[in-house]
Simulated scan of single mutants.
Amino acid sequence: MNNEPPELDRGAGVVLVVDDVPDNLALLHDALDEGGYTVLVATSGEQALTRAAQADIVLLDAVMPGMDGFEVARRLRADPRTAATPIVFMTGLTESEHLVAAFAAGVNDYVTKPVRTSEVLARMAAHLHSARTQRQARNALDAFGHASVVLRPRDGRLVWQTALARRLLAEFFIGTDAPGADGLAPAPMRAWLAEKPALGATFSVTQGARRLSFVLHQTLSEDEWLLVLREQSDAATIAALGPAFGLTARESQVLYWVLQGKTNRDIGDILGTSPRTVTKHLEHVFEKLGVETRTAAAVLVVKRLGPMAGAMGG
Rank of each mutant, 00 (worst) to 15 (best):
V107W: 08
V107D: 00
N108W: 02
D109G: 09
D109P: 01
D109N: 14
D109L: 10
D109T: 09
Y110M: 06
V111S: 00
V111K: 01
V111P: 02
V111T: 07
T112K: 13
T112W: 09
K113H: 11
K113M: 09
K113G: 12
P114A: 07
V115K: 06
V115D: 00
T117L: 12
T117Y: 08
T117M: 13
T117D: 11
S118D: 13
S118G: 10
E119D: 12
E119P: 00
E119S: 14
E119Q: 13
V120E: 07
V120L: 12
V120D: 01
V120K: 04
V120G: 01
L121W: 15
L121G: 01
A122Y: 11
A122C: 09
A122N: 04
A122H: 12
A122M: 12
A122K: 11
M124Y: 15
M124W: 04
A125K: 10
A125Y: 07
A125C: 11
A125S: 13
A125E: 12
A126Y: 11
A126L: 15
A126W: 07
H127Q: 13
H127Y: 12
H127D: 10
H127T: 10
H127W: 09
L128S: 13
L128P: 05
A131N: 04
A131I: 05
A131L: 08
A131V: 07
R132D: 11
R132T: 13
R132M: 09
T133F: 05
Q134R: 12
Q134N: 14
R135T: 13
R135D: 15
Q136F: 06
N139M: 15
N139C: 15
A140F: 05
A140M: 13
L141I: 05
D142Q: 13
D142F: 09
D142H: 08
A143I: 10
A143T: 14
A143Q: 14
F144R: 10
F144G: 14
F144Q: 13
G145R: 01
H146D: 07
H146G: 07
H146L: 13
A147I: 06
A147E: 08
S148N: 05
S148Y: 03
S148H: 07
S148P: 00
V149S: 00
V149E: 02
V149G: 03
V149T: 02
L151T: 05
L151F: 03
L151H: 05
R152P: 03
R152C: 09
R152T: 06
R152G: 05
P153D: 09
P153F: 06
R154H: 15
R154V: 15
D155K: 06
G156P: 04
G156S: 09
G156H: 00
G156Y: 03
G156T: 05
L158G: 00
L158M: 06
L158W: 02
V159E: 06
V159K: 06
W160A: 02
W160R: 06
T162H: 07
T162S: 15
A163Y: 06
L164K: 07
L164V: 05
A165S: 10
A165C: 14
A165P: 01
R166N: 11
R166F: 02
R167A: 05
R167I: 04
L168N: 07
L168K: 00
L168Y: 04
L169F: 10
L169A: 08
E171Y: 08
E171I: 04
E171A: 15
F172N: 00
F172M: 06
